[in-house]
Amino acid sequence: MAAIRVNNAVKRFGNVMALQHVTLEVDSGQTVAILGPNGAGKTTLIDMLVGLSRLTSGNIEVLGHVMPKESRRVRERIGLCLQSTAFFPRLTVRETLSLYQHFFTRRRSVDELLDWVQLTEKASEPVSKLSGGQQQRVALAAALVNDPEVLFLDEPTTGLDPQARRDIWDLVEMSRQHGRTVILTTHYMEEARHLADRVIILDRGRVVADGAPNALIRQYAPNRVVRVSGDHLESLEKLGWNPVAGASGHEWQRPLEDHDQSLESLLAAARQSGAHVQRVSIQESSLEDVFLHLTGRSLSA
């Protein structure tokens, strides 16, 4: 059964097309990462899915309900962890979760949630006194007060330090094992690859790729890359190598294709052309390369 159906969704802000004819379906139980650079339309898409913003045209169904018309019925059954939102700073962690719990008919116990996000010891602290990572765990707990069928996480780890990010990942992983449908947006490909069984790449409001992370890599960036650094590398140009952008000619690279000669012979040819190669590395393709391949731009730019 499809948890989410998006059909030909368009959202326009003035002259800006934030979403352009997006069509997709998410089965229940799937964990989907929506990957894209800032401004790709990820947050806009989430806002549409949870009924916080209206489509210009097209239609969206969540759990069989038409959005945003039936938003309130849908919100009863979904959990949200949104960007640029906050909780009342003067309420304690426990008071916050207990308040949010009262907005729903299906309620999980606050103690259980506190234990789950490891904030039992901080339960009596005001939310404003918590660190960024702890506040994000409160947000995650608040998203789960109604034991939701679908969990929406908009950039859940943006701005967190690596440890706090790992903690959030563990919590998302647990939620996923619980059988929940999870939709998360991120501009960290590592996050998408680690958490999701399906990645949707969004660029300038359009879906440019959709599939399992490894399948996408196999499809769009099957090549590994050999990268060398050293001196007198200009001679490599004739052999099909390209200078690495920003390395001022001291680093060059070329694809390592399956039908290529062995790495050994590639390097021998390089040396013969007069290049002084000092270091060699082989880079596995990533979702970053998929994005680069599809858009001609870097994801992190």
């Binding site: 916080l52 919100r75 640029s84 939102t85 909780f87 907005f103």
Partner: peptide
């Protein structure tokens, strides 16, 4: 203040009217 801090937006995302 609640609105600029995103507190209202978070409340809006619940069944609360």
């Amino acid at each position: 203040t609640y609105r600029t801090q995103g507190i209202l937006r978070r409340l809006q995302a619940t069944p609360l009217s």
